[in-house]
Design a protein around this nucleic acid. Structure first.
Lengths: 103, 103
DNA sequence: ACATCATATCGTACATCTACGATAAACGAT
DNA sequence: ATCGTTTATCGTAGATGTACGATATGATGT
């Protein structure tokens, strides 16, 4: 092991892992903007987001995937389009975890 | 440009950038644990943190540098050691930005 | 001066992230 | 059936992140 004196069950908790995963999802400005935009629109299709961001369609799709995997947004197929919306539960969970950081 | 139809001054705001920078700093479980541990101790020396984490000294020092650069912690040289503590202003700022996300 | 301790930094290997163009897949319209 | 539209995925290049051992730096104690 790198550090034999460290406590095996370290101070890194499940909550730390969870917070880190959610923080990582919002660690890119484009993804923060997507979440905000989605929240302000209630719901909107992928192409609308592409039109608003200075990024290629493939890149936006990739960011949306990150947000979907982490639970921040949900996508629903609607004919040829995909309709995205924020998952408020994940936002609230993130807010709870961040708020519980001792300041 | 990747996407000529995108608004040049895009929806990505300064706040989005700021939130992303702070979120990135907490996007690793070890760094979340360091902030929590530091907050619970009030203040403690680098070696104490190394002893508690399952990571090499160099790695911990690197994580501390990330936290210092982003403003989450402050380090004060105290003789041969360095004394670290949380910067509550940055934690509060992060909490404010996260709390202002529409859920 | 010298050895020791605590910490930061260097160099490096490997993994992950971010961006893109190209292409595939799924649907609606003609 | 074929075409255009919309979105996801593939492949890839370059940047950044994460881990480590080794080494430099700076202070204390002998």
């Amino acid at each position: 092991m790198a550090n034999p004196t460290a406590t095996d069950v370290s101070v890194i908790t499940e909550r730390d892992e969870e917070l880190a995963v959610l923080a990582r999802a919002l660690s890119h400005p484009a993804r923060v903007a997507i979440v905000r935009h989605l929240a302000s629109m209630g719901t909107c299709i992928c192409g609308e987001i592409v039109n608003v961001l200075p990024l290629a369609q493939a890149t936006v799709s990739q960011h949306l995937k990150v947000l979907k995997t982490s639970g921040f947004v949900q996508g629903e197929v609607d004919g040829p389009r995909t309709c995205y919306c924020v998952n408020p539960e994940t936002v609230k969970r993130f807010q709870t975890l961040v708020a519980s950081l001792p300041a």
